[in-house]
């Protein structure tokens, strides 16, 4: 018999969803699954535009300079007929550093665009393993720089520019904020780190608890970090921009919002990052939703916990943007 690992139970409503979705979802993602998973992702173009049209949102794709000046694409999303200057949100999407496109998490963006009248710039950073570190975080930073430089033309008030991302996108948002601080880049009004992927070292209690269970388990996380860092994963040769959990100096960073579930790999690194921000004198708001698995707000939006998570997050963004 295997040793029983103690871990927080899933919230019953979320567990019911997980049970139904589990036949479509392997708990553990291994490197050889990456091509298949990318293929399996739905062709997003048509449905994205349908969703945007239904929400009354205009999309403009722009080619901008990425890392080393290579061309990357961003999409500028705003409410139809929007005029003047207002809040801006620079978005870095999730997908474990290995999957997804800039429209992953679109559902979250719609509310920010329509309810907060924000202009969202979402960046198509290049994915590992084909483009390992530092490509992803440097593409994100280049996209942020472009956004800040074009703030006036985009209708963004430069004093009200946030960075936001979920999962791998949360880690990239935190890393981008660190680069911006260190290289005198754009000033950020806040960083929204949604269940962020921050630590490549695979040494938390939560990662051992979520092994072969839930969503984006320990093996999947190792797959993602290995794609990004190769042999450097877990060694001393990893920059704080790739794995912000390694940062020892968090002073001077923008205020942070961090949320996660208690039943996910990222729980402990996310809590630790919030604690480290407080220790450095940075304002931070932390929510750990009991029994939540990774990404439960996207997968189970009808549940009471998902609604509470969205409400708390959107409230922070509205307060921070002064909406």
């Amino acid at each position: 018999m295997t040793e029983t690992v103690r871990r927080p139970p899933f919230d019953p409503e979320l567990e019911a969803v997980l049970t139904l979705l589990s036949d479509q979802m392997p708990p553990s993602i291994t490197p050889e699954m990456i091509p298949l998973l990318r293929q399996a992702a739905p062709a997003s173009e048509v449905s994205v535009d349908d969703v945007l049209a239904a929400a009354g949102i205009v999309r403009r794709d722009v080619t901008v300079p990425g890392h080393d000046g290579d061309e990357i694409e961003v999409s500028v999303l705003s409410r139809q007929g929007r005029t003047g200057v207002g809040p801006g949100i620079f978005h870095t999407h999730g997908g474990g550093m290995i999957m997804g496109d800039r429209f992953v998490g679109l559902d979250l963006l719609l509310g920010w665009i329509n309810d907060l009248d924000a202009v969202v710039v979402t960046v198509e950073y290049r994915l590992a393993p084909e483009f390992p570190d530092p490509y992803p975080v440097r593409d994100c930073y280049a996209g942020l720089v472009w956004t800040a430089e074009h703030a006036a033309e985009l209708g963004i008030d430069p004093d009200r520019l946030l960075i936001a991302g979920g999962s791998a996108g949360g880690g990239l948002a935190a890393g981008t904020a660190l680069i911006a601080r260190d290289e005198g880049g754009p000033a950020l009004a806040g960083q929204v780190l949604i269940y962020p992927m921050l630590d490549d070292r695979d040494r938390t209690v939560s990662t051992t608890q979520m092994d072969g269970i839930g969503v984006w388990d320990r093996s999947s996380n190792i797959t993602g970090w290995s794609a990004l860092l190769g042999d450097r994963r877990g060694t001393d040769d990893v920059s704080v921009y790739a794995a912000p959990a390694r940062a020892t100096d968090l002073t001077g960073l923008p205020p942070a919002f961090i949320d996660c579930g208690s039943a996910e790999v990222f729980r402990d690194e996310d809590v630790a990052y919030a604690s480290a921000l407080w220790a450095a004198g940075v304002q931070a708001e932390l929510h750990v939703w009991p029994g939540g698995f990774h990404g439960f707000d996207i997968m189970a939006p009808h549940t009471v916990l998902a609604k509470a998570m969205r409400t708390a997050r959107d409230s922070w963004i509205a307060r921070t943007l002064g909406v």
Binding site: E13, A16, T19, L21, G94, M99, V104, G295, M299, A300
Partner: peptide, 29 residues
């Protein structure tokens, strides 16, 4: 990751998915 599985959506209007229904409510109960 969420993009692998999408989200829980309504059952097929035309095909019986009794096991899913039973499972869902059993877990809730």
């Amino acid at each position: 990751m969420q993009e692998l599985v999408g989200r829980l959506t309504a059952l097929d209007p035309a095909a019986s998915e009794s096991l899913k229904v039973v499972t869902y409510f059993d877990v809730l109960v």
